[in-house]
Design a protein around this nucleic acid. Structure first.
Lengths: 341, 341
DNA sequence: TATTTTTGTTCAAACGTTGGAACAAATATA
DNA sequence: TATATTTGTTCCAACGTTTGAACAAAAATA
């Protein structure tokens, strides 16, 4: 075997008595190259097992065909489904994807951005870490002049493309459903309101209660990180109140699970005594008993639209930017944890 | 703003009246460059917001500092944990990671390899798709002369580095435990035996039964894809037998969950009538009722060792290859689904 | 037949960085 | 003082590809 020497267009050129530039043009289907030459170049390329050097072409062309995707974590049904969908669209167009995870840490998010920019990605697609409150990283990306598209976590006023679901409406759907199940006193365990999506869920919850002429009690609203433990602890707190709720709308499935577990341990009947609704349609929501009513976020579509928004940005690189926001309709998946009737 | 022009080492050179090559050397801490020059170059680089162009340096140096990681899917606790661990080690050493998912499809796996090689990765780390039976892709990577390290799925005779857990021993631990809980008739729902890890689990199961002088009944061994549905269906099949098992060792947590669900639906008491043990320690195993006894695979350590094996391969690129295999000890996590006593 | 257009190719420079050779100046050794 | 060594820098070619300009030959038009 010996040392593997990669074949380059120069080698092909030598075999055929052409110049590298002719070979390059033949391979790129340049109109001024004859059919005959193109065919023979293809032939020789195959014979010599030619693999184009993307680094060289990327350097020359000033684009890497690499897209950076930053998500809080891949180990989540929602994000991995969005990812798969983004991949499908972008691979089709010849892009490769660098996934990086922020693990919900603002610091890691920043480091990831640096790494991606260093790698000369042609653009960034991101869903923000919970911790992220300021958008300074956005300036960096803007300074490079490459597109940025946000999804789910990251609705903003910065004029950045955004794809997500209608969180406000989600809350309405949940409350409407619970009211139709005869619930009168509905608590809300939400995420931190500095994040748009959670703010919208809280707002939707308030407005929906009002719509149904239910009294609004600020003591029934909680903000937390929505971990399983958070769900447990807040549920415990709620159970110690005099005036217990008869339903809890939890803005995340993991927290909903924690709440459910605690209720079961305490011998509270779900949904008869207290109904539970989660958010996100994580797979385990259908596995536990009772199965958890939740909101489906249409991850595949979000991924598809996100990738498409990105592609459009690339295409119109130097036309005046048009802001693209796409807000999808959520879907309520009714399961055992809320069916009183 | 206008068109963003990236600053290059040439710009820095101009400012200081130096040559680009001096700047490059200063930035790379070349011993022959004076401290004074280095300091001023750093200064100007900072002022001009210089970002090195990795493409150019990668092209010149013939290495991209990119590592391709191929996993069946990121949406799995095990793989995402391994991934995080690999990331931690490799980021430290200046590598970036391109994650690609095979979604258990052999075809996708091959396409991913092509994409990664095209992107000029410096090496590949992989865990194989269930479907993968032939190792032809391996030849491609070998032909490029870059290292390949496999983990979990991919034990082989090809002389490729491999990190995994001792599946044979895992089965022994499971059977030992079940026997100590007074189980006499233990069934096994396994993966396909063309995959090493599953073959080893089956072998371990057989040998362990023999060790305990329990009769071996081939009708109690099943091979499947280990989905939740597979678990249900096989459990159903088992329940219709005259001679029911009193324990089922399932080689995957999802299938174990399916089996458990079916048993609960049929009013069979777990673990009293039939005990269940899974494999993988997926988070939901501790969430369901009864919680599922399972095998912990030490994902963090697997990731760490895998990354380290990769780094060593890179370092010793042209010394005669030494095969590295690391087999970690599994850990049995005993939970409700198997505690009869 | 003279002129323009088209076709197929070569030429040369560029993308940004790197690293060995060359070289002058400063310093050390004989 | 003559020579050898060290230090700090410049020079230049290279990595593999792309692209516009240039050019000769062939084909089309006048």
């Amino acid at each position: 075997m010996g040392t593997k020497k990669k074949t380059t267009i120069k080698d092909i050129a030598n075999v055929l008595g052409l110049t590298p530039s002719a070979v390059s043009k033949a391979l790129n289907n340049h109109p001024r190259i004859s059919e005959k030459t193109k065919v023979s170049v293809q032939q020789v390329a195959k014979n010599l097992n030619y693999q184009p050097n993307y680094l060289a072409s990327a350097l020359r062309k000033g684009k890497s065909n690499l897209v950076g995707v930053i998500i809080p974590r891949a180990n989540s049904n929602f994000f991995s489904a969005v990812l798969e969908s983004i991949e499908n669209v972008l691979h089709e167009k010849g892009y490769n994807i660098i996934i990086s995870q922020s693990y919900e840490s603002f610091e890691k998010e920043c480091r990831n951005i640096d790494a991606l920019l260093f790698t000369q990605v042609d653009g960034v697609i991101a869903s923000l870490a919970n911790e992220t409150k300021d958008f300074s990283f956005y300036e960096k990306i803007k300074a490079k002049g490459i597109p940025l598209v946000l999804f789910d976590r990251g609705e903003n006023d910065l004029g950045v493309d955004y794809i997500g679901i209608d969180d406000y409406q989600s809350s309405h759907m949940v409350v409407d459903h619970l009211v139709s199940e005869n619930c009168k006193r509905i608590a809300h365990i939400g995420g931190f309101s500095h994040t748009r999506i959670f703010k919208n869920r809280i707002r939707g919850y308030r407005d929906a209660l009002e719509k149904h002429n239910l009294p609004l009690d600020d003591n029934l609203i909680f903000e937390c990180k929505l971990t399983k433990t958070d769900g447990r602890l807040i549920m415990e707190e709620l159970l110690h109140r005099e005036n217990r709720p008869d339903a809890v709308y939890v803005a995340g499935d993991y927290a909903a699970l924690g709440a459910l577990e605690y209720l079961k341990e305490q011998g509270i009947k779900v949904p008869e005594e207290i109904a539970i609704v989660g958010f996100g349609n994580e797979p385990f929501t259908s596995l536990v008993f009772p199965s958890i009513t939740t909101i489906e976020q249409h991850s595949t579509e979000i991924g598809k639209y996100t990738a498409e928004a990105f592609l459009r940005r690339i295409k119109e690189a130097d036309t005046p930017p048009v802001l693209r926001k796409k807000i999808l309709d959520p879907e309520l998946v009714v399961r055992g944890s809320s069916k009183k009737i």
